[in-house]
Design a protein around this nucleic acid. Structure first.
Ligand SMILES: [Mn+2]
Ligand SMILES: [Mn+2]
Ligand SMILES: [Mn+2]
Ligand SMILES: [Mn+2]
Lengths: 222, 222
DNA sequence: CTATTATTTTAGGCTTATCTAAAATAATAG
DNA sequence: CTATTATTTTAGATAAGCCTAAAATAATAG
């Protein structure tokens, strides 16, 4: 139906819209895809002909409903495959992204819906990102950055904003995993590093850079 | 590493070599891939430059060791994914080929070896075709066509030579499955149709065309 | 408002994988 | 051995995706 390239454009545009909440501009998309602006312009024309985006010369552009639906489908596939790789094939969460980048392009509604059922209709992928259901519906996350909270707050580690293997394997090293309950014991005035209390183990210190890539939600009321 | 296209050429050449036991010729490959001879000629030049095949103008061509190794790897991936789709996602054996055609191109040694382990190192795919191991080794089948056997022979249904969905779903309809023990009760003189005895159920009649696409092995000695 | 800077588009090229039509080569029948 | 047929190769095109360099347009600072 659609080429890999087109699907990658769709996904990238979707994520930029999500991030900025605005119309996407050429240069941002070019940067996201590591290609040149001239190439993007070419493709925008084609995609707008196919009614995947609205586009006016030298203005920004955004996904049409059709484009958005396709983009969400690609994200659904990506995240479901990541769950499979981690849950069933025992890959680490830092290892699965590149494989999922390939697997997300496999075309078969039936396949992905059966995979979803096989995995037990997971709500989130190994990085805490929500998985759209068959209809493309998914809960908007109410997570906040750990770095925005105050000393004394307790919360639960629910996601990451940095998906790089180096960041994720750093979290493995310090044994921070999704679902962990975290209490902010202290925020160091000088460098904004965080001292975190963790259930049943020694507290750890993380830099502000790390705290700025960790998403948390309020502690579940019991 | 290699493009989908190149991988499809490799697989097709491998299968033609396997079938004919000979050097492959342009027109056969063109037919197998549903493309034109001129296109094949182009690609043969490129593949021979990459040392994937030996090739001399207007002679036939064959896979080098390097090409053969790659081809077997693709077949391994195809068949392992088919097992996954049938065993884990409950697809019918007539439904999985097109998905496997896509999945076979996913690049990751680690992924396919983990999938192999997850599936319990299956020896054959849902159609009875042998699955090469990590090193590319697999048993050459000693199956024969049902149509070559004589009245009175007992054997076990072990594979098919026609992989089309129509043929496979016909077998489903008459409830013939891999592993079934079959006894040839009678071969009709006039049209070479076969009457087959099946353990614990009524005998069935199949046409010579069907008998000619069914592979069987000798009944296991108990 | 205008000059400078930033962004986008156009123009012209390249590569891969395909096609059609024509030319060259090989195989085969008589 | 030669004429006819079959197969393969060459030549010239096309479409998708990408590039660089130059031109056009938009944004911004003074
Ligand atoms: Mn990912
Ligand atoms: Mn993810
Ligand atoms: Mn198959
Ligand atoms: Mn198969």
């Amino acid at each position: 139906m659609h080429t890999f390239t087109e699907e990658n454009y769709l996904k990238a545009i979707y994520k930029l819209e999500e991030q900025t909440g605005e119309t996407v501009i050429n240069s941002d998309l070019a940067k996201a895809l590591s290609i040149h602006s001239a190439t993007v312009t070419d493709m925008l024309k084609k995609m707008s002909q196919k009614k995947l985006i609205t586009y006016e010369k030298s203005k920004g552009f955004e996904l049409t409903d059709k484009g958005k639906k396709l983009a969400i489908g690609i994200i659904r596939r990506h995240r479901l495959w990541e769950v499979f790789l981690v849950e069933n094939l025992a890959f680490g969460w830092d290892e699965v992204h590149d494989m999922a980048e390939q697997l997300e392009h496999i075309q078969s509604e039936d396949l992905i819906n059966r995979l979803d059922r096989y995995l037990g209709h997971p709500k989130a992928d190994p990085h805490g990102d929500p998985i759209p259901n068959e209809k493309g519906v998914f809960a908007k996350s109410k997570a906040t950055l750990l770095s925005t909270l105050n000393t004394g707050t307790s919360c639960v580690f629910s996601g990451v904003t940095d998906h790089s293997a180096t960041f994720l394997s750093y979290l493995d090293k310090v044994k921070l995993s999704l679902g962990d309950t975290i209490k902010i014991i202290e925020i160091e005035e000088y460098d904004k590093s965080f001292i975190l209390g963790l259930e049943g183990r020694k507290s750890i210190t993380i830099s502000s850079k790390i705290a700025n890539s960790i998403l948390v939600v309020a502690e579940p009321s019991k």
